[in-house]
Structures are given as C-alpha cells and as structure tokens.
Design a protein around this nucleic acid. Structure first.
Lengths: 336, 336
DNA sequence: TTGTATGCGTTATCAT
DNA sequence: ATGATAACGCATACAA
C-alpha cells in the first residue's frame, strides 16, 4: 500500500528527458549552466512524470542541511505559538523546513529531544531560554550547528540569543506599581522551578520593590503550569489570607486574566481597590472590559529576527529586543 | 565554524570498537543478533566518541521514513496548538519526528507547503480539514504516504479522517438555543471563505433553525481571522442595528469571548437579555465570571487518535470523535 | 554472531 | 553545456 507507485527519481526524469542526471539536478536547482532547450525538456519530463525531488537524498549528498530544529517548552501558551509563527514565516522564504518538538518544561526531556533533533543534522537548533542541562549544552556545542536561544538574554548564550531581560521586566513592573502609589503588593504565580523565565521576573520584581524599601506583602504560588483557572484560584486564596493588599503582580497574562475574572465575579473594584498587572500582553487582555496592565513582549519579532540572524549567518551575539509596559486599565487608570 | 569537528560516523565507531559497521548498526537499533560483549564495546565507543546517528542517512538507506508532516492553517488559534500537542505527544513515543508548516488558511499556500513537505518523503502527512485544492489532492494521492485529515468528517476523506461533524455541531447549537426559549437569534462570525469548518457550522446552524421554522434574525461577518477584538466589535455593530435579538451564536470562542466582554462592558445582562454561545470550549471561557456556553471539541484526543491510527497502520476510515454541548452560564442559566 | 558489499537518490567534481 | 562517477552515512541482504 505504501509504495504502490514506485517513487520516481531523478534518474527516471533524466532518462525520460534524454539527458544526464547531473543536468536534471542543475536545472532543478537552477545552478550551474544549461541551455534553455534542455531546460525545457527537463521541465517537461518533470511535469509529465510528476517528479518530486527527494530532499532526504539531497540533504545527505549536499553539505548544508535545509532542516531547522525548533524545541519549545509548550504549545498551550500562545507565546510559543507566536514564536513558532515568527520563525516559520521567515524560514519559509528560504526553503527551510522546520522539525519541532515540545519539552513540557522538562529539562531532561529537552535533552532527549535535542538529541533526537540533532540526529537530523539541522543547520540550526532553536530553543527557548538559556537554561539547559549540561548534557544538552555539550551536545549542542559538539554538533557544530548554529544554536539560537530565544526569549531570554539574562545570561550567557551558547551562540545566538534573541529576546529581552526578564529580570528587567520584573523590576520595571515593580517600579511602575510603586509609582502608581501601590504599597501592599502581592505576587500570584505558577511553577517557578520549571519556568525559569518567570522565576527571573519574580526575582527582578522583588529586587525592584526592595530598591524602594518595600517587600512582597504576600505570595501565592500554584505548582502547576500557568492557566486562567490557576490565576483565579490563586488570587482568591491570596485575598482570603491578605484582604488588605492593593496590587497583584501575576506571573503572566493567563494568570492575570484569572485574577481579573475573580474580581469581576466578586465585585472587587479594579483598579481602585486592587491593581492587576500581568505579563505578555495577550490579545485577549486588550479586550477585557478594562484592559489588563501588562508587559508587551515582541514574540513574533523575536522569532523572525532569530531566524534572520541564523539565515544571514550572523556572528554569535545576544540581541535585546526589549519589552513595553502597558498600563492604564487594571492599573492606575485614575490613580496617576 | 560549521564543521569544526568533522562529524563522526558509524564507520568511526566501528573502527574504534574494532567491529564491523553492520554490527554497530545492529547494536544501536537493537535489531538482529550480537553478543553482550560486543554490545558493550560498541556502546563504549559510542559514548566515548559522542556519536549521534545520522537519521538523514538512515532514512535514505532504509525503506520507512520516520518523518511525519503536519500542516496546519494557523498557530494563533489554540485549537491547532492542541492538535499539534496531541499528535507530537503520540509520535514521540515511537521515535517519529514531526516536520510542520503553517498555511495561514490559504489553500494555495497549503498546496505549496504540501509539496514542500512531501519532498521529505514523510510516512504520513496530517492536515486540517477535508477541503483542499485539486493539486493538493493529486500530490497527496500520488505520494503513496498515509494521509490524515483532521478536525472534520463532513465529506470524503482521502485516506484517514479524524474529527467530528461541524454541520451537526451547528445544528445542535441551534436546537439548544431554541430549546432554551430563544427566538430572535443572530450570528457573529469571521472569514467564512477561508475557514471552511466555521462555514459548515454556520450552515448546520441555519439548517437547525429552519427545521424549527426559524431563520437568522441578523448576521454580522468580520472579514478577518477570528479574534476577541473582532467578536467584540461584531456584536457591538450587530446590536446597533438589531437591538432586539435575544441570542448570538459566535463562530468560535474567541469571537464569543469578545462578545461577552462587550456585554460586560456595556452592562447588557447575560443570559437574561442576551444568550451567548460559542464553539471550542476554550479553557479561558470556563473561568469567565459566567462560563461561556460552547461546544467542547476533543482536539487533543483528535491529534492523539490520528497519530495512533497512522502508527498502527489502520485502514482508511473516517473516525467521529464527537463533541459536547456545554450550556449553562451565558445560556439559559435560569431560563431552563 | 559478525563482516562485506551493495544500494538509497541526490549533489558535486571532474572530464569532455 | 553536459555526462560519468564518486561521495554522503547508513541499512540490509548475503556470506562467513
């Protein structure tokens, strides 16, 4: 059932066109020289036979592999989907094919998956974050292919890194909250051990508070992936213990959205009684009755720039694409 | 910089272990027979040299290709991310690697991308929906690989189809709205030409209304991809023209969420004045102050089952995984 | 149990 | 401009 029609090959085309194999190869890749007449004959044969070049064979024979490996922690978070979009959009323009894998935020699994994709001898492997197991780092370095670490620049990249500083994002969020007059500030977050970047934001946030002589009034951590439900439950739990807080920093917008829904449901006035700020500036949060304050991260652009750097054979570097605080709405709409 | 360390090959390992190449190959794939002693020597050499098998060469040499191609319309919709998760999760257990591409809902682009992935001679290509260009269908059939069409079973599959009936989903939604006592029913949707499945739901919905002697009281279409913003603007526009409708069917949950936010923002009471129902049952919509009525679609399961069918070499078939109406909340919480 | 040789479908290097 | 031919790195008969 599989090979009903014995796959037709370059050789078949060459024969049908009455030319040599290398000629067909040259015509198809538009590389080297050939007359327009032979070109026409070759193309005719290709059309007639419905020939589809075998890239596996091509990749083996040629030096450069057109495959690019992408390894992300998750797909349920829109952030990584955006990243993927940016990357593939750029890759397509250069005939590159993406092979990808999902780690579920597990460093060991990441190591296994990196090993798996490396077996395809990709021209580059793009992965999220700067934290990897020693084994992962070793394999990556030994592979000789380009390595692109995405979304984070707080640390030493293996080769190319494209992202922004999560520590700075956390710190600036704290500063903004304080500038808005908030003092009893809490944090509601998710699994900090697995999501290293949210941990960095948390640290930056605490540091930002400390710089102004403040400390966290309360912390609620949900030991699970971020989700709207977790944010909602997290804020509810936190308020039960600390009814007096006046602002909450959520580990990301999914969590913040849940918190906001909790307030809507219980009639807690936002931002008067409680300010809310998240992270990522998801599209959804721009359309809630009150837009949710957040930090806009250039995810698609990160993906695109990362792919471009690799495609243009750029030197090793750490590229900071920054972020943008978006306030108003659930923070200081009227507090100034 | 690329090939600083000349990639080490099977031959190198064989030499280092003092055995033949085929022996190394057998040991590594745990296939055929070999003594434990040689096995140890081979593994030692593999470890020492840091050998990573070249799957490109392996795929070319062996008959079966471990690559599976996945072509989806978009990534910004969680639905497809879920689908991907389900597929890759299952594929991983069998050492299959996914190559993927995004069509942006463009049939022509789909054709080009299918051609591109086919060049990798995948064991299967999985794509969304049953509608494809004639060219796409021809290529797919000629390829001889397994074809898995996802998310839709309203039509003739090329090989395997796994999904549910969108027509039925639309029809049942209409029935439920009517059963809840709604009569002045409207529709707010997005780009029906590109998203064929939402068009099918729309048709089923209209048919469902017609069966009860009703017809659509108003329709608002946004000629763009679905989004929260579009849903919000769409409902606002619709209510401006038709203030008397008592229920709205949204093309999906992103749109419905936007509509719901519009109601929250303007104080329109839901579901008393206006019932809202969407499609997909996104996680977010389970946590809004009122859960948004919707149709739960088994996206992850569709991905998993699809991968399983292909892996188990199942015969051509159309597998209906159904859907589940979730009401309450924004529909008939008290209307009975 | 193990090694040798052939082939997979290209690309690339040479001649011609 | 074109055609042999040797890699590419592995799997797989087939022999030993």
């Amino acid at each position: 059932m599989d090979q009903k029609t014995a796959a037709i090959t370059l050789t078949d085309v060459a024969e049908a066109a009455g030319v040599g194999e290398s000629t067909v190869s040259r015509v198809l890749r538009n590389h080297g020289s050939f007359s327009q007449k032979t070109r026409a004959r070759v193309m005719e044969a290709v059309e007639r036979l419905g020939y589809v070049p075998n890239r596996i064979a091509g990749a083996l024979a040629s030096t450069g592999n057109p495959l690019v490996a992408i390894v992300v922690p998750s797909l349920s978070n829109i952030v990584f989907a955006d990243l993927l979009s940016g990357i593939t959009r750029t890759l397509e323009t250069r005939q590159r094919q993406a092979v990808f894998a999902v780690t579920d935020y597990d460093p060991e699994k990441e190591e296994a998956l990196v090993a798996a994709v490396l077996a395809w001898r990709p021209a580059a492997v793009m992965l999220v974050g700067l934290e990897h197991t020693e084994g992962t780092r070793r394999m990556l370095r030994a592979s000789g292919c380009r390595i692109v670490e995405l979304m984070d620049i707080d640390g030493e990249p293996l080769d190319i890194a494209v992202g922004f500083s999560h520590v700075a994002a956390g710190r600036e969020t704290a500063e903004r909250l304080i500038a808005a007059g908030r003092r009893r500030i809490a944090y509601v977050g998710h699994d900090l051990e697995r999501d290293r970047r949210s941990a960095k934001r948390f640290n930056g946030f605490v540091e930002g508070l400390g710089a102004q002589g403040l400390s966290l009034a309360a912390v609620e951590i949900c030991h699970a992936p971020s989700s709207v439900g977790a944010g909602k439950a997290g804020l509810a739990a936190l308020l039960r213990r600390h009814g007096d807080i006046d602002a909450v920093y959520f580990s990301n917008d999914d969590m913040a959205l849940g918190g906001y829904f909790h307030c809507l449901g219980t009639g807690l006035s936002v931002p008067e009684r409680l300010a809310i700020i998240g992270f990522n500036a998801l599209d959804i949060c721009r359309h809630t009755p009150q837009p949710i304050a957040s930090v806009l991260t250039p995810r698609i652009e990160i993906g695109m720039r990362a792919a471009e750097l690799f495609l243009s054979d750029a030197p090793a570097q750490s590229l900071d694409l920054g972020f943008t605080l978006i306030t108003g709405g659930t923070l200081s709409a009227t507090t100034g």
